[in-house]
Design a protein around this nucleic acid. Sequence first.
DNA 1: CCCGTTTGTCAACAGCCATTGACTTCGTTC
DNA 2: GAACGAAGTCAATGGCTGTTGACAAACGGG
Lengths: 196, 196
Amino acid sequence: MSPVAALERPAAPRRRDAAATRAAMLEAAKRQFAALGYDRAVLRDIAAEAGADVALIKRYFGGKEGLFVEALKSAIGGPDRLRGWDRAGFAREIATLMAGDPHAHEERTQTFQFLLRAATSPSTAPLLNLAVQERFLGPIRDWLGGENAQARARVLAAVHIGFLVERLIRGEALVGAEREAFIDRAAAALDAVVQS
Amino acid sequence: MSPVAALERPAAPRRRDAAATRAAMLEAAKRQFAALGYDRAVLRDIAAEAGADVALIKRYFGGKEGLFVEALKSAIGGPDRLRGWDRAGFAREIATLMAGDPHAHEERTQTFQFLLRAATSPSTAPLLNLAVQERFLGPIRDWLGGENAQARARVLAAVHIGFLVERLIRGEALVGAEREAFIDRAAAALDAVVQS
DNA sequence: CCCGTTTGTCAACAGCCATTGACTTCGTTC
DNA sequence: GAACGAAGTCAATGGCTGTTGACAAACGGG
């Protein structure tokens, strides 16, 4: 019934490669967790989507929670992601991003859903908190510098998150005058935090 | 172990009253769903907290989903928080709320948590969309007034939600100097939107 | 070519939980 | 006060899902 991996020419079931299957499972996990949330995501389905067996999840990740943490880290990315941002363009760039681009946002949206779901689920919130602290708040704090960097980083993260959620709820991208107005306001809000 | 309804004098098991037990179950459901989310919330516990039996949930609400929807409606219909806010105090009030209060952060954030967690349940997405539009975006827009009210309302709602989520992830309330700094910055960010 | 190790597969288990229907008790009406 | 319906209780059942250990196949070095 499901169009999972129906047409994956069964003649070449992928040469045995632990790293590859591990990566495939991680990818599938990100998709499933994003779409369904932690509790509703089913290990069997994740494994199936990756073209692997459930038992391997235990072997490679220890269990469901381990898989989730690993997927979370993979989704958030490394702590050096902020490198190269400049203060001037930052606010408007983020704002434009959040207004929504009709194209090319598939992957980003998925990551968001993933993070949002993780945030709103009590079972995973502590895990997310840890990851955010290490890979988001810390780097942003350092990037901001100056006084009260920690608190400002918190606020910045909150505002950022807010735009992501709004974008997610809205569903479609903004257009025309409303889009311009939105970007202006959002950039102003972000700048208010970045500029001390 | 759990301090559910242990001390509800068992001598007076409540005179038979369908409406009352229904209401009690709804109240318990709101609490449990807010605290645990849809999936982790257990009907047995909800019934127990309401001092009723599980089977009645089926009879009165049709099932778990029905109970959830009903609880959501009930939560949405709560008091309107925007009434009486003035432009001057608004930002700081919200910011303080989001910093977290070591005490008394039960009732106030429960509804918000419930709504946020509900956002991840596909079956309630339309319901929630409507609620956000009617009870959040609409009032905020009217309250803001002036030019580009709609766009500004979007941004304001987004920032607000962002703080909610950040609070949810963070888990604990802020204290001391960081708390003060956070409130200041958050208020500034909100003000940047409110003041046209 | 052989053997140990890695990789992948299979089936069963065990716990949790919503659902369900039959049964009992209470309240009300005639 | 008898009978009917509503309110509440109880136990069992069935499905779902994470986990687990035993087994088979492939790989690679000696």
